[in-house]
Design a protein around this nucleic acid. Sequence first.
DNA 1: ATGGTTGAAGATCAA
Length: 257
Amino acid sequence: MKLSTYNVNGIRARLPRLLQWLEREKPDIVCLQELKCADDALPVADVEAAGYPGVWHGQKGFNGVAILARGEAPALRQVGLPGDSDDTHSRYIEAEVDGLIVGSLYLPNGNPVGTEKFDFKLSWFERLIGRAAQLLQEERAVVLAGDWNVVPEDRDVFSVQATAHDAVTQPEAREAWRRLVHEGWTDALRALHPDEPKLYTFWDYTAGCWQRDLGFRLDHLLCSPEAADRLQGASVDKWARGEEKASDHAPAWVALA
DNA sequence: ATGGTTGAAGATCAA
């Protein structure tokens, strides 16, 4: 079973690329982020026609997450994270597919540091950690996949110096990430590629970053112990970033037994 | 030269 996560950066603008990627890679389960599209404007019929029914949590303008499954509709478990009645962002959706619990998440970017946006990032992260703890208590196979907007370690970004003031490298965000991982989650990409320096999943559109391979590792798949026991592979579909009209993120995936 | 690009919205914001 192959589970992929893909920040599409606008599903309507990206639909041809998304359908091309689904056809080529044939993932069994797909977590999408940054739909940037209201629920009533989502290209649900096109995605279903490609063989992927899904559960969707759209939002006009920005955010938006979904979970797709090949051939069978995911069973929706939860939309949004509890704990903040003022949070109107569509950044979390959770479903069950073929016995696997799947969360698709888009953690707030948090730039610029020192603003309420960064505070929101950290508070949202705490709410996610709370949900993750509940999931671990179920002692089932769970994968939390998405755009975490966190660079876990210095080696996961092209330049520490150039990104020193970016919200994705801040110590507070990394501390939250480590605290979550240490609860018992496996960072699948890093676990299966412990010595690979460039596990990048995002390359900025500007300044020729893609052409020069100046990337970030921002998209992660965290596996519960029951899912980690089934880990057979994990990688990045880097080719997708090089296509015409590509998202600035590449899909990342895990293969589970 | 404080640069560069993209998407969605709408005359900017978020990334």
